[in-house]
């Protein structure tokens, strides 16, 4: 495990030396958070002023949206989108980083030197998977967790408390499900990067993985928060199972028999 952490730490160190990359990832999550908070706070403001609320309903009706009480509908849509986007963007970021994991080694010319070192192939793959998850996970935890906490404090979100902390289903999905599936996608990305001999191939492969994962995993994590905690735990375990499969596949693909 020491070598796994060594590889992961080196990846994190390289990420830290690329602030533009970290800023890009942070910008995606910050934009989601900013938009969601803006709409939620606006709804809270409208809700607190009867005159504004009446005007809002009237304007919606003029626009063709006849609703008895539109604010909860808007809030539900906002929270649903927030969770879906938070999970899918986190998964996507890790998959993209891991999708370049071994391609990056080939570009740096370091692969032969890793292969002559006493690091096992699974250690190298797992280290790269953890390395890919680390930075996006920190951003997801701070920006995603912070936004969800602020949203949970607003009265307008109370009817949908199960979509936010401290609902147990949300906590399990956020703290276990998201990270577990990001590991799974990172391991799929790593496996793709072993076989990809150039960045373009890696990018297209990762794009496919991200597309499929957004539809399937994003829906399960974000859309099934109303299910009980056990369901979310099973989803998280599923993520860990697929991580093991992905790491195993990447290890088998990463042959010591390489060409320089």
């Amino acid at each position: 495990m020491r070598r796994v952490l060594l590889v992961a730490r080196r990846e994190w160190l390289e990420h830290r030396r690329q602030p533009a990359m970290i800023l890009s990832m942070a910008a995606v999550l910050a934009m989601i958070s900013g938009l969601v908070l803006f709409v939620a706070l606006l709804m809270a403001l409208i809700e607190s002023q009867p005159h504004s609320k009446a005007l809002f309903e009237e304007n919606l009706a003029t626009a063709g949206f006849q609703m008895q009480d539109p604010i909860p509908t808007v809030i539900e849509g906002v929270l649903s989108s927030f969770n879906f986007l938070l999970f899918t963007q986190f998964l996507g970021m890790t998959a993209v980083l891991a999708g370049h994991a071994v391609v990056h080694e080939r570009q740096c010319g370091t692969l032969p030197f890793l292969m002559v070192a006493p690091v096992r192939r699974w250690e190298l793959v797992l280290g790269k998977v953890l390395g890919a998850v680390g930075t996006p996970w920190l951003l997801y935890l701070v920006l995603g967790g912070g936004t969800a906490t602020i949203l949970a404090l607003l009265d307008v979100t109370a009817p949908f408390a199960w979509r936010l902390p401290p609902a147990s289903g949300w906590l399990v999905a956020f703290l276990l499900g998201g990270p577990a599936w990001s590991l799974a996608l990172a391991s799929a990305g790593a496996a793709l990067s072993v076989r990809a001999h150039d960045v373009r191939t890696a990018q297209q492969g990762v794009w496919l993985v991200v597309f499929l994962a957004s539809i399937m995993v994003g829906t399960v994590l974000g859309g099934a928060l109303q299910e009980d905690t056990v369901f979310q735990l099973v989803v998280a375990l599923g993520g860990l199972f697929f991580t093991a499969l992905g790491v195993g596949a990447a290890t088998l693909l990463l042959r010591r028999d390489i060409h320089l």
Binding site: R3, L6, R10, E14, C108, L111, F113, A117, P118
Partner: peptide, 19 residues
């Protein structure tokens, strides 16, 4: 075959760590 964003010493320490 070195990591370009790391310093020379960091590269040496990383590979030494693997051993």
């Amino acid at each position: 075959g070195l990591y370009p964003l790391l310093t020379g010493r960091e590269n040496l320490r990383f590979f030494g760590g693997l051993y």
